[in-house]
Design a binder for these strands. Structure first.
Lengths: 246, 246
DNA sequence: CGTTAGATTTAGGCATGCCTCAACATCGAT
DNA sequence: ATCGATGTTGAGGCATGCCTAAATCTAACG
């Protein structure tokens, strides 16, 4: 009656890692709680599978959960999640920088490799890349000690007309978005200015320091782009500054 | 009564790949038959596990096997094996060339990565490395179409006194051997000359074009080194020339 | 030609990790 | 307070891949 059911899972299981990562991603970026069904959707898994796995995570000391409540991470769960995120983003950066992958192609490959590669591999990649702070999509790469520095950024759909800033992050949830930006020649760090809103969900975006080029942005795109402001703002803030984990 | 038992395994299973690779390695290098127990030893698996898996390989059209007989590969089994060997050796080469691994450190990492990485990854690595023909240990890297060019080499323990040649392959079975060669400063392609045999299993090896340095070689080492002769020879030939698969 | 040692195969199990289905608990909102 | 959405649990399954133990076969020896 000590160790629950037969739960013999370890921290090395890639399922465990995926669950922890999913909880982290849903918890720390958007803030707020993760529900079991949210996780089920994100992981493309049945609801009851989540319940079962979360029980194991709790047994492993990685997650916190009371019945019918939201799922959260313990400090060591967060540490594991950060380690996995670090792996993922370093691998993505490596694939783009060293092997010529497009930023729209790296996610799936990294998703597999992050579970396979050794710590030594990650360390060597990190060194070779010069200890990068951001991955190809602008996501911050946690340091080996768990420190993450989030850019002070705002999602495009939360900003006002006339706002100017620099594109510092593109969500890699949708490779289509990435390919679209490629086709429009808009890279990370591009200077942007918001034009007049064209309705509830459409807005104009002027590209380049001179704002010469303009394009119309739909709701999907607007939710994928994060801008670091050069004008005062209000709205959806991505994160304030830095945090340390362990 | 059609598809045997429920065997739904695919060619993607890393176990399947490991078994096929093991059969290939035992069959094509040393020549001759592979027995089930040989495979069991090589794969550190129980005997009966081999039987079960070989049945699946036969179902998949990868292996040939009659009860109580030796195990062999079908053409598509050989093609799969060569693809895996290619992956393994390209990854090893990549780790050494691009990430600064030592040649004694790459085997295990490659063993994991070869099952994970995509075809696109392999292609990009191959291109980045300039389509290498040999891995860090001197093993030939099969081309994408299954062509392999084996060096015309002889194992050191099958050569006579006074023989001269170039070190073209070191077995990576034993990382100790690799580290020893490192410590003695003997790289691949070193010029070597066999000195007087010191007994049944000991022999002297002179290193460098001038043969200035000499060391004593024991049986273990002698079986790990392959030499491309610059003098006439006889004895254990590694392979004759090239072969095409597919 | 038997016997027997060793190799090989079968049978029965275990662990992981996922699934569905169905019964039930809980929460929140009307 | 009751209904419906959301969460939990258990039973029953499936697939992979490994194990041990016992049965069976082969081959080599006297």
């Amino acid at each position: 009656m000590a160790g629950r059911k037969g739960s013999v899972l370890s921290i090395e299981s890639s399922s465990v890692q995926d669950y922890v990562k999913a909880i982290y991603a849903s918890t720390e970026w958007q803030g707020g709680d993760v529900t079991a069904s949210h996780l089920a959707g994100r992981l493309s898994v049945a609801n009851s599978s989540v319940t079962g796995m979360v029980t194991k995570l709790v047994d492993l000391g990685l997650a916190e959960h009371r019945k019918y409540g939201p799922v959260g991470l313990t400090p060591s769960g967060r540490a594991l999640a950060l380690a996995m995120v670090r792996r993922h983003r370093l691998i993505e950066t490596f694939l783009v920088t060293e092997l010529g992958y497009g930023w729209d192609e790296v996610h799936d490959e990294a998703e597999l490799l992050e579970h396979t590669v050794s710590d030594a591999f990650i360390e060597r990649v990190d060194a070779k890349l010069g200890r990068p702070r951001r991955d190809p999509h602008g996501d911050p790469i946690p340091a080996a000690d768990g420190t993450v520095v989030y850019p002070v950024a705002h999602r495009l759909d939360g900003l006002d007309d006339g706002h100017t800033g620099r594109l510092v992050r593109v969500s890699d949830d949708d490779p289509e978005v990435l390919r679209y930006l490629d086709s429009e020649g808009i890279p990370l760090d591009a200077d942007l200015r918001l034009g007049r809103r064209g309705g509830q969900s459409l807005l104009d975006l002027h590209v380049g320091a001179d704002g010469a080029r303009a394009l119309t942005v739909d709701a999907v795109l607007a939710r994928a782009l994060w801008i670091e402001s050069t004008t005062p703002h209000q709205g959806c803030t991505l994160a304030e500054s830095s945090s340390t984990q362990r």
